[in-house]
Amino acid sequence: MYTLEHVSKVYEETIALQDISFSVQQGEIVGVVGKSGSGKSTLLRLLNLLETPTEGRLVLADKDVTQLSKKEIQQQKQKIGMVFQQYNLLNNLTVKENVALPLKLIGVKDEEKVLELLSFVGMAHKKDSYPAQLSGGEKQRVALARALTRNPDVLLCDEATSSLDEENTDDVIRLLQQIHQEFPVTIFFVSHELDTVKKLCERVLVMEDSRLLGTVENQPTLLEKSNQPYLEKVQRRLAK
């Protein structure tokens, strides 16, 4: 799927990434963790084809991205879904219109698919609502539906749960696990929340000071919806 071979990225005199090498196969769930300034965001921009390496090779689907034309890069970008920390929903569009937007931008209208995706993420009942009327967890569900509209091969999640409370974080993790089961998608989950990464990711890339320190294998377990009352959850957590 992705192969990085001795990739470095330099902005003027600032080294953002230094000699990064790893491979990710189709269908993996990979976490990327590191302190602020470690290079996570730059790595994500490379994976999203918004940047090209200063040195080294970035290979996506057996193609060296530095050798692709602008048209070919745009075609590859359409196979990449993106989920952001701040949702990036357009406030003047309804939930349904936000999810339909990636299709609209390429001249496609498929209302049935949009409604199917909203049903999949549990937001069909809010299809005519506006983002300002939604909670943070609901906004992220809509953002996930939008990211799936073009049937992506890759889903890039940039701190997708950092703005959410514990319960909504678990809801999003469960949804990502369900997406991984039902769609043939590779997931990159960039986060500083190690507990969340542990719940979701099969392999974790650890970054610091623009370098890849190493890779940690992990065995996530499927999260099940808890029916425990909120008061009991608080009491349980505070008792630890």
Rank of each mutant, 00 (worst) to 15 (best):
L4K: 03
V7L: 12
V10R: 15
T14D: 13
T14K: 15
A16S: 04
L17R: 06
L17N: 02
Q18Y: 08
Q18V: 10
D19K: 06
D19G: 08
I20Y: 08
I20C: 11
Q25D: 12
I29T: 03
V30L: 02
V30W: 12
V30G: 02
V30F: 01
V32D: 07
V33P: 07
K35D: 10
S36R: 01
G37S: 04
S41F: 00
L47R: 10
L47Q: 00
N48R: 09
L49T: 00
L50C: 01
P53L: 05
P53R: 08
P53K: 03
E55L: 11
G56M: 08
R57L: 00
L58P: 04
V59R: 12
L60N: 11
A61S: 10
D62S: 15
K63V: 07
Q67D: 06
L68R: 00
L68A: 05
S69P: 04
K71E: 07
K71C: 04
Q76I: 07
K77W: 09
Q78M: 15
V83L: 14
Q85M: 15
N88L: 10
N92I: 04
V95P: 03
V99P: 01
A100R: 01
L101K: 13
L103S: 10
I106K: 00
I106C: 07
G107W: 01
V108Q: 10
E112L: 09
K113Q: 10
L115E: 14
E116Q: 15
L117P: 02
Y130W: 07
P131G: 07
G136M: 01
G137L: 12
A143V: 07
L144Q: 07
A145Y: 09
A145N: 00
R146G: 00
L148N: 01
T149I: 11
N151G: 04
P152H: 09
P152D: 11
D158L: 02
D158R: 06
S162N: 05
L164G: 01
E166R: 09
E166F: 06
E167G: 00
T169M: 04
D170V: 03
L175N: 09
H180S: 09
E182D: 14
F183T: 07
F183I: 05
P184C: 15
P184E: 12
T186E: 06
I187H: 11
V190C: 10
S191A: 09
H192L: 10
L194P: 00
K198N: 05
K198T: 02
C201Q: 01
C201E: 03
C201N: 06
L205P: 02
E208C: 11
T215F: 10
V216P: 00
E217H: 10
T221A: 13
L223V: 08
E224Y: 07
K225D: 06
N227H: 15
Q228A: 11
Y230K: 15
Y230S: 09
L231H: 05
L231Q: 14
E232H: 08
R236V: 07
K240F: 09
